[in-house]
């Protein structure tokens, strides 16, 4: 029953939502809409579950004085204080927003900016001309890089035009091919989940 229950839920909800997509029947559409709304509620509960899991994990680290338990203390202080503030004074309060804007926002933006640094070091290696395909990659990469910013247009009007052609034609063709392949893979995986053939997510192999 531990395995059959989730499989049954996936099958029934999956079939109803699919039917709601394909057929006009108001009853089916209403049921489908209702299930999609339940999914939103379940997603919200899953967030709460994640919070509880983190609380439990870091709590264990502190109690057991495990490696790096000090970081777990920092997590606990941040988690509890921000949570209490959010509940007590609401997430629209000035205090809550002050912390978000002056602590979380700059920290998260910093993480994103790391991408640029890693991109440059990857660029140093990735565009090495080992064969003719790599040479094509480098030349197209260079044209698109220049064409996307003003400096390309300042050098020559042809650069943004060629860059736009590369993005719109060969690049779009490749993307469509990858998208078709990937989408079919997703459709088939979804069929497998709905039919209960895919059970890895509940640690069950297809036996």
């Amino acid at each position: 029953m531990k395995r059959q229950g989730p499989v049954l839920v996936a099958f029934v909800t999956g079939v109803i939502v699919l039917a709601g997509y394909f057929f006009n029947s108001q009853t089916v559409v209403d049921m489908s809409t209702q299930i999609v709304r339940w999914q939103n509620i379940v997603a919200a509960f899953a967030l709460a579950l994640g919070g509880v899991n983190m609380f439990r994990l870091h709590g264990k680290n502190i109690i057991g004085r495990k490696k790096n338990w000090v970081y777990s203390c920092i997590f606990m202080v941040a988690f509890v204080s921000y949570f209490v503030l959010g509940v007590a004074k609401s997430t629209t309060s000035a205090e809550y927003q002050y912390i978000w804007q002056n602590l979380y926002q700059p920290a998260a933006s910093t993480m994103y900016s790391f991408t640029l640094f890693y991109m440059t070091s990857a660029c140093w290696r990735a565009f090495r001309i080992r064969n003719w395909q790599a040479a094509v990659l480098m030349v197209t990469g260079a044209v698109v890089l220049l064409g996307q910013v003003g400096i390309g247009a300042a050098i020559s009007e042809a650069i943004p035009a060629v860059s736009a052609w590369i993005i719109d034609t060969p690049n779009a063709a490749a993307i469509r091919a990858i998208t078709i392949g990937g989408s079919l893979g997703m459709v088939v995986m979804s069929i497998r989940v709905i039919l209960g053939l895919e059970r890895t997510y509940m640690a069950g192999r297809q036996d």
Binding site: I178, G181, G182, L184, M189, I191, R192, L197, R205, Q206
Partner: peptide, 26 residues
């Protein structure tokens, strides 16, 4: 692994019948 290759991974690694069916359908 590019795009559908990650969906083919199950078949490739397990060679289980419904996995093979999924790959063929794709």
């Amino acid at each position: 692994l590019i795009s559908e290759e990650i969906f083919a991974a199950g078949t490739y690694l397990s060679k289980e019948p419904t996995e093979v069916g999924g790959l063929t359908a794709g």
